[in-house]
Design a protein around this nucleic acid. Structure first.
Lengths: 126, 126
DNA sequence: TAGTTATTGACAATTTATTGTCAATAACCG
DNA sequence: CGGTTATTGACAATAAATTGTCAATAACTA
């Protein structure tokens, strides 16, 4: 059968998500997982991300003016937002959400979702 | 001297911003301004946008997972947010802003800016 | 109005991100 | 262990957005 093999490459990528605890770009994933594998090719990261996304293990995070990030689906499923550090260029999870958004939309509009991206300096860079 | 010539192409692009009253993509600009000029080339739109941006007449709007938009600097300078209609794919201005964002950021982080993108259906599509 | 030159637009070229290909490798199964 | 085949990674190829080029045009100036 077409089973899934347990490779050290995919393991390293999964580990990167687990330990980083923040949304990761393809490049970040490559860099982080390379610490475990060393020979990890960028092509493999692209394949793994696509697969993990299709299987619902990770979810794509869209951020303004920056390449897509990915985070664990278990994290993504809980409503939250993101903080972008303009110094180290990393994204962090922000749990908490300003409410009352229905009050600010124009008349006749139907609000369904919202994305909030905070930015500034993370604790390491501040 | 290197003055600026008043061309109908640039005029059409300026008019598009004035009448649309919402952030426009390069493609949208091309489409809207083409109604005035007809022969307007995409190359000209790229050039005009770059120049208007450099001269501070328009400002780039970064939106999550979508190509950049541009809006009049006079609009951009007033703090506001955007609404994305998932049906017609247009962006609209939202005046108003949820406050209290400092309360939700992690400890030690320094909040400087924030971007809020609401999404759903605009009044035309709802 | 005639001359100068900024602007335009067709087309080619570039850039960057992502995917296709395929031989070598390594994970899994009996 | 040995065979099967999913996976990997080097490399080429593609796709899409943006920019370079340059002859033709159109705005401006004297």
């Amino acid at each position: 059968m077409t089973a899934h093999r347990q490779t050290k490459q995919l393991e390293a990528i999964r580990t990167a998500f687990q330990t980083a605890e923040r949304p990761l770009s393809i490049e970040e994933l490559h860099e982080l997982a390379t610490r475990d594998v060393g020979t990890l090719g960028l092509r493999t990261v692209y394949r793994a991300v696509r697969r993990l996304e299709e299987e619902g293990e990770i979810a794509r995070v869209l951020v303004p003016g920056d390449s897509d990030r990915y985070e664990l689906a278990s994290v993504a499923s809980k409503h939250h937002h993101h903080f972008h550090c303009t110094a180290c260029d990393r994204y962090f999870d922000v749990h908490g959400c300003p409410g009352g958004l229905n009050k600010i939309i124009p008349n006749g509009f139907k609000l369904e979702h919202h994305d909030l991206t905070l930015s500034g300096l993370c604790s390491s860079c501040a």
